[in-house]
Design a protein around this nucleic acid. Structure first.
Length: 316
DNA sequence: AATTGGCGCAACCGCATCGTC
DNA sequence: TGACGATGCGGTTGCGCCAAT
């Protein structure tokens, strides 16, 4: 591999980083901060392309990188999140503090994917079957084996700019994702640099599907936390913006009591006092998920979300 | 001891998206 | 509004290590 790199044409270094390069990059970023990757190598005196520097920093040099093996808890969380989100490693990584998307991706491709497949042939949704590299190569270019089971798995992040909802027969909601991003993002915890507007935009329509369906599926028959939620307080950003570990272990008693936007609140109020809620119509999935041509598969994914959260309640 | 094959990690590539002009 | 550069993401693969033969 390592075809014709963008760096090679300029006679830049490629391949493994040396300790000296690491030091130079680390020192430079400590002084000047992240960003401006294009010009960074030149300014720092590195013979690397900006992309390479960025990758090295994000995946290896960053001080908050967690070293060591993936813990069973993390593993479990990865499996759940993958079941829910598919191969969107950056989103998954965002829920695992200190872990990088590359690390999680590698971990999945090398061991977890196999485990998941071995553990269950039908209920889980392994995306990559990696019994061997040969096997893996066979899969390249073909849709994930379990795609029919999960409409959520995608090979590429796709931005949804608009979502059309048929909440009521004659009512079409036009939801502009930019609005979501700008209104929802402020509720995201300050530390969570990974949860960018973009990632929110990518995932939100699905989450709205999922959450709405989930809430309905609960159908008040479960005493669990979602059932206690005032619909208007069910805000997607809070699910995405908080640490999943927090989400899984949060104090249910807080819900509905109007926790006040502390960083650790699972359902914090936005600082502006605004509630960015899922419209009630959206929650009436019986009306719109079915009539809107949503595949039945999505329902199972929604149930995945439900189980994700409910299982979390039990396990975490 | 030498060879072979599998595995895990780090790094690169292409492409999509964003931001600016 | 389109062009263009910058950035981010997911997929892919080379390389080194290690166990098995």
């Amino acid at each position: 591999m390592m075809k014709s790199a963008c760096c090679s044409k300029e006679g830049l270094n490629r391949g493994a980083w040396t300790a000296l390069e690491d030091k130079i990059l680390t020192n430079y970023i400590k002084v000047h901060g992240e960003g401006k990757w294009r010009s960074l190598p030149k300014k720092a005196g590195l013979k690397r392309c900006g992309k390479s520097c960025r990758l090295r920093w994000l995946n290896y040099l960053r001080p908050d990188i967690k070293r060591g093996n993936i813990t069973p808890d993390e593993e479990d969380l990865i499996i759940r999140l993958h079941r829910l989100l598919g191969n969107r490693w950056s989103l998954i990584a965002a829920r695992l503090p200190g872990r990088t998307d590359n690390e999680i991706k590698n971990y999945w491709n090398t061991s977890l994917g196999k485990k998941v497949k071995a553990g269950s042939n039908s209920t889980l949704t392994p995306n990559n079957s990696n019994q061997s590299k040969q096997m893996k190569k066979k899969l390249i270019g073909s849709p994930p084996a379990t795609e029919k089971e999960s409409s959520i798995v995608r090979t590429k992040a796709v931005r949804c700019t608009k979502v059309y909802l048929r909440a009521q027969e004659d009512q079409i909601e036009h939801i502009n994702s930019v609005d979501f991003a700008t209104t929802v993002a402020p509720t995201v915890g300050g530390d969570d640099h990974h949860m960018t507007h973009r990632t929110l935009e990518v995932v939100e329509p699905e989450f709205y599907n999922g959450l709405a369906s989930f809430v309905s599926a609960e159908d008040n028959s479960s005493p669990n936390f979602m059932a206690d939620l005032n619909e208007e307080e069910l805000r997607l950003s809070d699910l995405l913006g908080c640490d999943f570990s927090q989400l899984c272990g949060f104090d249910y008693g807080m819900v509905g009591e109007g926790s006040n936007g502390g960083d650790n609140d699972v359902f914090p109020s936005s600082s502006s006092g605004q509630r960015h809620c899922i419209p009630k119509e959206m929650l009436e999935l019986e009306n719109w998920t079915r009539s809107d041509g949503v595949q039945p598969a999505i329902v199972s994914d929604i149930q995945s979300l439900a189980s994700l959260i409910l299982d979390s309640e039990e396990d975490w």
